[in-house]
Computed example of a mutant assay.
Amino acid sequence: MRRAGCVLLCLGLLAAPLRAERVGPAPGTGECVPFARAISGVRLYGDAWSWWDKAEGVYARGARPEVGAVLVFRAAGAMRLGHVAVVSRVIDPRIVMVTHANWSRIGGQRGQIERDVTMTDVSDRGDWSRVKVWYDQNDGLGGSTYPTYGFIYGRAAGGARVQLAHASPELTGTDPDIIGSVIDTIR
């Protein structure tokens, strides 16, 4: 059994459904970028892949998952604009749950929000540079791996907290399920 499967089994999560909660259409365009910006408070614009460079010197970046951090996918293959997803839970250093928009085709339609989607780090060095993501149509982790840059954190590059646009108690960490709380407000 692969490491991720063993970890999930040891945590007792294989008995629980790993299916992401389907929240519905994303507000606005149904794209990942405006959705990630709205729920993370990270005020970056442009194609998803461009967020990594745009965050340099503005937001702290790294290879360690944290709740509320935005994982930036590189442009690759059919994903020519990249992708961004917000960490909603850290299960262990190589398994997280993310909330994102416009990933799985649900009911034949893109632009849906999925909450608490399983994502695993499959990189050789454990640095989150390559991931597998839950895909609704497969009812499990997808067969593809995706290259990523890393995580953008909601704090200044120098360590001070960045004033998040529309910051709420949920986004500042006082609620144990910050992403869920934010999504509940936009339903």
Rank of each mutant, 00 (worst) to 15 (best):
M1H: 06
R3H: 09
G5C: 10
C6T: 15
C6Q: 15
V7M: 12
L8I: 05
C10F: 12
L11E: 14
L11G: 05
L11M: 13
G12L: 07
L14T: 12
P17L: 10
P17I: 04
P17F: 10
R19C: 04
E21Y: 11
R22D: 06
P25M: 12
A26F: 04
A26R: 01
T29V: 08
E31D: 12
P34V: 04
A36Y: 02
R37S: 06
I39T: 01
S40I: 05
V42D: 00
G46Y: 09
D47C: 04
S50D: 13
W51H: 07
W52M: 05
D53W: 14
K54L: 14
K54C: 04
A55F: 06
E56R: 15
Y59T: 02
Y59E: 03
A60K: 15
A60F: 09
R61I: 04
G62S: 08
G62D: 07
A63F: 11
P65R: 02
V67Y: 04
F73P: 01
F73V: 02
R74F: 03
A75I: 06
A76R: 09
M79Q: 11
G82Q: 05
H83M: 06
H83P: 02
H83V: 04
A85R: 02
V87D: 00
R89C: 03
V90G: 01
V90F: 08
I91P: 00
I95S: 11
V98N: 00
T99Q: 04
H100K: 11
I106V: 15
G107N: 10
Q109M: 11
Q109P: 00
Q112P: 01
I113L: 14
R115N: 08
M119C: 04
T120V: 15
G126A: 10
W128S: 00
R130H: 10
R130S: 12
V131G: 00
K132H: 10
V133K: 01
V133G: 00
W134S: 02
N138E: 13
N138D: 12
D139R: 14
G140D: 14
L141T: 01
S144D: 15
T145F: 02
T145C: 07
Y149R: 05
Y149I: 03
I152Y: 06
I152G: 00
I152F: 11
A156H: 14
A157T: 08
R161S: 09
L164W: 05
A167D: 13
A167P: 07
E170W: 09
E170M: 09
D175R: 15
P176Y: 02
D177E: 15
I178Y: 06
I178E: 10
G180P: 02
G180T: 05
V182Q: 03
V182F: 08
I183Q: 01
D184Y: 11
T185M: 12
I186Q: 10
I186K: 06
I186H: 08
I186T: 11
I186L: 15
R187C: 06
